[in-house]
Computed example of a mutant assay.
Amino acid sequence: MTTVEAKLEAARDDLAARDGVLVAFSGGVDSSAVAALAHDALGDDAVACTAKSETLPEAELEDARRVADEIGIRHEIVSFSELESDAFVENDDDRCYHCRTMRLGEMLETARSLGVSTVCDGTNADDPGAGHRPGLQAVEELDVHSPLLAHDVTKEEVRAIAEHYDLSVADKPSMACLSSRIPTGLEVTEDRLTRIERAEALVRQWGFDQFRVRDHDGLARIEVSPDELDRALEREFVETVRAELSKLGFDHVTLDLHGYRTGSVSPETESDAAESSSDD
């Protein structure tokens, strides 16, 4: 038995010993692996739950629905608004803490209504060492179970588990919530979130895989992975994106020649903290 197989079995046995679980489910690879493990272990006593809010792109919600169908797990969708929290809107260094507290609070409330005693998330063994991650404090405070972390499953091993279950998201890039595109200290508003979502939908149509559109109060800073920079410099892309993003309300449109970097608008040690459980 390989190390990954042993960890997979241990995580599955962990979940099988519970009366039922609700998985905080974004459709990213981490939460999808947990959902697949839970469904394998518990069948109909496992539930995936996605929290819909202004910070979740519609495309990600559709992905979550699709992956839940792949797994065959029951899928619940609940709605809430982070924008009702002044602490979240303020967008300080602990934005992800406030977001995760609200999001997991919705999970716990849904679990109670379904008579489920355990809420799980997709935190993996690599996450605690990945820089400033205030969202992990919320996971600990709310006593949410992280089976991947509990059984020392790394990100690479998560992808192997996803492949074991034939999940289409096994190689999916990490995806943080839309608020991670707004620099710390600049208020999170519905208008900013909407134009970021629309801008990224446009960039995605050009076939880019790993990218972000950062909103610097009217200046759009496009980041793409280093191996895609050449394509981003092609005249047709440059002219089209500049025109379309200007229509969305951006005063200036720029391409970051450093390429895609997690947490590039956040504190120096912060990575995109929602990538594994909002899920990512």
Rank of each mutant, 00 (worst) to 15 (best):
L42S: 09
V47D: 04
A243G: 15
L136N: 13
D94A: 01
T269Q: 14
R214K: 11
A162S: 15
P147G: 01
V47H: 06
E244W: 03
L248A: 13
H216C: 07
V265H: 04
E76A: 10
T110F: 01
I77D: 02
A201I: 10
A162G: 05
A274Q: 10
A48D: 11
A46C: 00
G20T: 11
T269R: 06
A17R: 07
D69F: 04
S32M: 07
L167V: 00
D93R: 04
T3C: 09
T118E: 09
F237K: 02
D227S: 00
E244G: 09
A59S: 09
K7H: 13
E190Q: 15
A201E: 15
S79H: 11
S225W: 11
L42C: 05
T189Y: 04
D86N: 06
T154V: 00
D13N: 07
L219T: 15
T240S: 10
L219G: 13
V188A: 08
T123D: 07
E5P: 13
P147D: 01
T2E: 13
S264Y: 03
T184M: 01
T254L: 12
D69V: 05
V144H: 08
P183G: 11
T118M: 09
L37K: 13
E244T: 14
Y165R: 10
G207E: 06
R100K: 15
E5K: 10
L219H: 14
P147N: 02
G135R: 13
G122S: 07
K155D: 03
I77S: 08
V23L: 08
D63H: 02
G28Y: 02
H258N: 09
I222Q: 04
G129D: 07
F80S: 00
L136V: 07
A111E: 06
E76C: 06
P57A: 14
R65I: 08
F80P: 08
V119G: 03
L167D: 01
S146G: 12
L15I: 03
G28L: 11
I161T: 11
E190T: 15
R242Y: 15
E187Y: 04
L114W: 00
V116F: 00
V21L: 14
A176W: 05
A36I: 02
E200T: 15
V4F: 08
F250C: 14
L108Y: 04
V29I: 03
K247C: 09
